Computed example of a mutant assay.
Amino acid sequence: MTDDLAHSVLRYTDQQSGKSPFATAIAGLTILRSDHPKPLSHMIIKPALCITLQGAKWTAFGERRFDYGAGQALVVGVEMPAVGQVMQASPDQPYLGLVIELDLGVMREVIESLDSAPIALESVRHGVLVSDFEGPLADCAARAVRLLETPQAIALLYPAVMREICYWLLTGPHGGEVVKMALGSDRTRRLVGAIHALRDRYADPVRVDELASIAQLSPSAFHRQFKALTAMTPVQYQKQLRLFEARRLLASGETNVENAAFQVGYESASQFSREYSRMFGASPRRDVASLRRLAA
């Protein structure tokens, strides 16, 4: 099944005029292709299935790195900044992948509809896992890709595909982990609420006391559990959000380095440039020039 799906994705990318990643007519479905190993890429990953159909790559969240090759999927349950790299790709055997954003509302509906819902595993601490991608899940992904050939059918049929994806994730071998990771306990949901507050106000100074209050935790417990879930401290999480957004602003030509620094919350343009260089391996101006050459 994954071979057939890889062939369908390869055919789809051959027909596109732009460059990977390819946004599709299905909201939340992105197709990836790389004919060569790629340099590091920086991204914000929402709750999603990140599937490798051909080739291999790795994705790191803070201090944790996850490798996944053909026939495997990275399951992400919490929105987080990440760094990734395609390691295995060639013109004859390009890296091929799919990103399917998960609808956690549908996930909750499916749990409530199950006669015997999986029990959330207390031992699961992280918001990410790697799973084999085969059988019914691969069939769901194949049907989603086939829907791209009939855009008029997407609105009617894709919601059922998403519901089935949630079903197979919840009833599969990692069901207990998926429940804990994507939906969590009341405590985890409050922690995710604090993460969303930090994401929405990333340009403001971090106030751990305020975030801890949202999570209904003491500041020390909040800091500990935040890092357990994301592999980052709140300050590290915020810094990555700021720098990713600044990079987007600069690459789009919307602003200059100094204004980008202030827009994302830095008070010092020199500090911004130092941290930007550490994150992306080059000064803002050199990095953006390189990005534009690659996009040309």
Rank of each mutant, 00 (worst) to 15 (best):
L156C: 06
P91T: 03
G28P: 02
H42A: 12
G77L: 02
A260N: 07
V86E: 06
A203Q: 14
L96Q: 09
K38H: 08
V86A: 00
C166Y: 00
L114M: 10
G253E: 10
I100W: 08
I31P: 12
G172H: 03
P205W: 04
L53Y: 02
F272Y: 00
L250W: 08
L98D: 04
Y276T: 01
K180M: 09
M43N: 06
E134L: 05
R65W: 11
Q271Y: 13
E79G: 08
A269S: 14
Q72G: 11
H223M: 15
M107K: 10
S220F: 06
R285Y: 01
I51T: 04
A295V: 14
G62R: 06
A194W: 05
P37V: 01
G253F: 08
V9C: 01
G62P: 03
D139P: 11
V86M: 02
A153C: 03
P136M: 02
D200M: 10
A155R: 08
G176M: 04
A138C: 13
A144I: 11
R285D: 03
Q72I: 05
I214N: 05
A260G: 04
C140V: 11
Y12H: 12
A282L: 04
Q85I: 00
P173T: 14
A261K: 07
R163T: 11
E79N: 06
G18P: 02
F222Q: 01
I45P: 00
L291R: 15
H223G: 15
